[in-house]
């Protein structure tokens, strides 16, 4: 009974944590720029404003369904991530299923933006899917290294096996670095923000989205921020024993990511993919080798 209740409340929890992390990020970026910065709840205000627009422009059925698929897939992905003491849906889908489901959101957005007919949107989608090809490879190698180490694909067991500072960050630093770079790419921060790139393709897939559509996309994005940080926390930072430690660790991930995000310029798309297939993949393969030779 409690399990089911938690299952229903988890997407809302994930949304608010995502909003908090996003707001924290904006504030931190501002402080690094030596600005005062927006209030912590600014992303929430943005979403309220977008959802309260009086008119909407639609370009067709798929255009409307795109954001819905994005939010729906994000909620589904959240449910496959374990929380401290709660297995969520992990008995029904393991790491491999999770890596498959994580992609659905981007595909939904690609389908929706494709119908708008705007050339900037098409370029943005092409870039998003190409970039995905780049960061998925090190992510999957890094994930499977843990599978080799523990002999299981269950995300909840990953969390319990790392309890008491047996974090993979310390035990398998190479794999953790590769996983971090891959997760960072999935977040689309600088230098991997070729997808939205406002100066080049006018926010890419979102170019024709406004009003309530964009509001839905921003809700989905907040949940995505939660997913990426929670995924890294569970795999490499040893999960957590209670919810506050969990959020604190996610905050740590966001802080490190923001430090990188504020100082880097932007890769061209082919350079980004070349980077992903060269350095993180090499590091991840090295980590895999170490686990094979060194054993568990």
């Amino acid at each position: 009974m409690v399990e089911k209740l938690v299952l229903i409340l988890t997407p809302i929890f994930a949304f608010f944590v995502g909003i908090f992390l996003e707001g924290f990020k904006r504030k931190m970026v501002a402080r690094i720029h030596r600005r005062y910065g927006p209030p912590l709840h600014q992303p929430l205000l943005d979403i309220i404003k977008l959802l309260s627009k009086k008119e909407n422009i639609s370009h067709g059925v798929m255009f409307d369904l795109g954001p819905v698929i994005f939010v729906g897939a994000s909620i589904l992905t959240v449910l496959f991530l374990p929380l401290p003491h709660f297995k969520q849906l992990t008995p029904y889908g393991d790491l491999i299923a999770f890596l498959y489901i994580m992609v659905i959101g981007s595909l939904g957005m690609a389908l929706g933006a494709g119908e708008s007919g705007n050339p900037n949107a098409s370029i943005g989608i092409a870039r998003a899917l190409t970039l995905m090809l780049g960061y998925e490879l090190p992510l999957i190698i890094a994930g499977n290294t843990l599978v080799v180490r523990y002999g299981t694909t269950d995300l909840y067991k990953f969390m319990t096996l790392q309890s008491g500072f047996n974090w993979n960050l310390f035990l398998l630093p190479l794999t953790a670095i590769a996983g971090f770079i891959a997760t960072y790419g999935a977040m689309g921060e600088h230098p991997f923000d070729t997808v939205v790139a406002p100066q080049e393709v006018a926010t890419g897939p979102m170019v024709e989205y406004g009003g309530k559509h964009l509001g839905l996309l921003m809700i989905g994005h907040a949940i995505q921020v939660y997913i990426e940080t929670a995924f890294f926390t569970i795999l490499f930072l040893g999960g957590a024993s209670n919810i506050f430690t969990f959020i604190l660790k996610q905050l740590g991930v966001i802080i490190v990511m923001t430090l990188f995000d504020t100082v880097f310029p932007r890769f061209r798309i082919e350079n980004a993919v070349r980077y992903f297939w060269r350095w993180p993949t090499l590091i991840a393969l090295l980590g895999l080798l170490i686990v094979y030779i060194g054993g568990k």
């Binding site: 904006r26 600005r35 910065g37 927006p38 600014q42 926010t203 989205y209 406004g210």
Partner: peptide, 19 residues
């Protein structure tokens, strides 16, 4: 940018007319 910082009022530059 840094000196006058319009973002503290929630005002940010955007690139498309829809948004």
């Amino acid at each position: 940018t840094s000196r006058f910082d319009a973002e503290r009022f929630g005002i940010a530059p955007f690139v498309t007319s829809r948004q």
